[in-house]
Structures are given as structure tokens and as C-alpha cells.
């Protein structure tokens, strides 16, 4: 009896851990957008979370159109896969385009201004995005189509792993690997690292800094787009304020890992996801957010530049 209890206790813990990791990898995807932009132009892009929100609204809109104009019935597996494909293709592209456009129109003229000026502009952009979201889907939470089954894939282990968990991991991990490879090995990636280290020197070496910045915003936006689709499918409801909440977590993740540092952002996201969910389970839901920030402050007290910030000097 006691043994059974202990076993289920462990399984329960595993379950919370899995939940934390899944949510954490979502935060990580969003955090990457923060951290890359910060690495290049030292801007805390407060609008990033709201870009993520708009992405999920677009995905929702796409699914509505898909059901109305293309297939008419979501039940067939082919229709669902087709819709997923469309969402995962269109949403990141749209988010990337929007992010680049925002940079062009709003942040670019402010490159030589003090940091606070740009941050305030970003807050302004975030307000406008929120207003767009408010008009688009209204203020009530909206149900996101439940496309991925909740079937338990591991019935014998006691830990429930569903297709949804597989999907999140299956999308986020490859995205992160692709990003790492891109930054490490392509010439554009090298240009990004160079620009992050020293923009003036990079420019002198013939790197087109404006292009590098545009690419950074594009990648950050695309990752937020991917995250928004995956989030919608996983959480199953979206609302216009979700950008604020999740953006805050992601920003925290980026700082926790050492802002400007790619692996740091991923690590930070995972830590926040796990701490938050374990906190909800074992400390109580009402304290979980305070716990996240408490841990953040503790970490920064002992490592003032984040978990990975000091050791790895390279940014982006």
C-alpha cells in the first residue's frame, strides 16, 4: 500500500515535471526572440509577447477559414494535418514580417537614441498590438480548435504523455537546433554574432548591419509565430492578454539565462516552466508566480549576469 502510494507520488512528480518542461520549452521559444533582439540592439522588446498573441489569433483565424472554405469538416486526419501545416507555415511568416516591419518603421529611426526611448516605443507598439487583438477576437478567451488528441501514449508507466506533449517537444526542439546551427555555421549567423559583439567593428568589416538586424527580427518573430501556434494547440484557448503574461515569463527566462545568450534563454525558459508548475503543484497555485520571481532574484544575486551570461561571453 505504502509502496503503491510512493509510486504514484513519483508518477505525479514526473507528470508535473513533464508539464513544466513542455511549458518551459514554449517560454524558451518566445524568450529566444527577446534575447536575440537584445543581443543585437540592446532593446527589451516589450511588444514581443503581443506579437506572439497576434500570431495565435492569426492561427485561430486560419483554422476558421480552413474549416469554412477548404475542408468543411475537421474530422478527417488529412484535413487536420493540412491545417497544422498551413498554420505552422503562415503564422511564423506573418509574425516575422510584422516584426521586421515594426523594426523598420518604429525602432530603426531610433538606433542612436538612448535605450529608454526605444523601450518606451516598444511599450507603445505593445499597446497597439493589444488593441488590435482586442478588436480582432474580443476580450473573452476564445476556444482554439482541439486538433491534437489527448490519447495517452504511455499507459503503463503512470505518467501520461499525450500527442500534445509530443507535438510541443517535436516542434520546439528542432526549431532550437535549427537556430543554433544557423547562428553557428552560416555566414549570416556569423555576421549576427559579430554585430552583437561590436556593431561598429562589424560594419567596418563589411557586414551589412541593417540586414543583420532585420534577419534577427525576422527569426525572433518567426519563433514567436511557431510558439503561438503550438501554444494554441496545447492550451486550447487564447485571449488578447495572453501576450502580456507569457511575454513576461519569456522575458524573465531570457534574463535568467543571461540576456543575449541563446542557450541561456532556453535554459531559462525550462527553469521557469518547471519551477512554475512544480510550484503550483506543491506550494500552491497562488504563490507560483511569486516563487518564479523569487528564484530569479536569488539566482541573480549569486550570478549577476544570469545562469549562462558570464561564462559564455558571446551574445546572440
Amino acid at each position: 500500500m505504502l509502496e503503491l502510494f510512493a509510486q504514484s507520488e513519483t508518477a505525479q512528480f514526473g507528470q508535473f515535471l513533464l508539464l513544466g518542461l513542455v511549458l518551459g520549452s514554449l517560454y524558451a521559444l518566445i524568450a529566444l526572440g527577446y534575447t536575440m533582439v537584445y543581443g543585437i540592439i540592446e532593446l527589451i522588446n516589450f511588444a514581443h509577447g503581443d506579437l506572439f498573441m497576434l500570431g495565435s489569433f492569426l492561427a485561430l483565424q486560419l483554422s476558421a477559414w480552413w474549416l469554412r472554405y477548404v475542408v468543411g469538416d475537421a474530422n478527417s486526419a488529412g484535413a487536420v494535418i493540412g491545417l497544422l501545416f498551413v498554420m505552422l507555415l503562415v503564422t511564423p511568416l506573418a509574425c516575422a514580417a510584422l516584426n521586421v516591419a515594426t523594426d523598420r518603421v518604429i525602432y530603426k529611426p531610433l538606433r542612436s537614441s538612448p535605450k529608454l526611448t526605444v523601450i518606451v516605443s516598444a511599450i507603445g507598439v505593445s499597446f497597439i498590438f493589444m488593441n488590435v487583438g482586442l478588436f480582432w477576437m474580443g476580450a473573452t478567451p476564445v476556444k482554439f480548435p482541439d486538433l491534437i488528441p489527448d490519447t495517452n501514449l504511455t499507459p503503463d508507466t503512470g505518467v501520461v504523455v499525450t500527442w500534445k506533449d509530443v507535438m510541443v517537444i517535436g516542434v520546439t526542439i528542432p526549431a532550437m537546433i535549427a537556430l543554433t546551427l544557423f547562428v553557428k555555421f552560416t555566414s549570416l549567423g556569423k555576421a549576427m554574432r559579430a554585430t552583437a559583439q561590436n556593431p561598429t567593428a562589424a560594419q567596418l568589416m563589411g557586414i551589412n548591419v541593417d540586414r543583420v538586424i532585420a534577419v534577427t527580427f525576422a527569426i525572433g518573430g518567426a519563433l514567436a509565430g511557431v510558439a503561438s501556434v503550438v501554444y494554441g494547440l496545447y492550451i486550447k484557448a487564447v485571449e488578447y492578454q495572453m501576450g502580456f503574461q507569457n511575454g513576461l515569463y519569456a522575458f524573465t527566462a531570457a534574463v535568467l539565462g543571461g540576456i543575449g545568450n541563446i542557450p541561456g534563454a532556453v535554459l531559462g525558459g525550462l527553469v521557469i516552466g518547471v519551477v512554475g508548475e512544480l510550484g503550483k503543484a506543491y506550494v500552491g497555485a497562488k504563490w507560483s508566480e511569486a516563487l518564479i520571481f523569487g528564484i530569479l532574484i536569488l539566482v541573480l544575486l549569486f550570478r549577476p549576469t544570469g545562469l549562462l551570461g558570464a561564462r559564455i561571453r558571446e551574445k546572440v
Binding site: F16, L23, I235, Q245, E277, A281, A285, K286
Partner: peptide, 20 residues
Amino acid sequence: HENIVPKQSNYQATIRGIMP
């Protein structure tokens, strides 16, 4: 009898805790 925090993205941890 537990409290939830409004506007949290999900309540899976809370529900999981109730299930057993």
C-alpha cells in the same frame, strides 16, 4: 479547497493534483 490565480494560462497542475 484551493485558490486558483485568474489569468493563468492553464490549470493543468491544479487539476492533476485533484485527480488522484
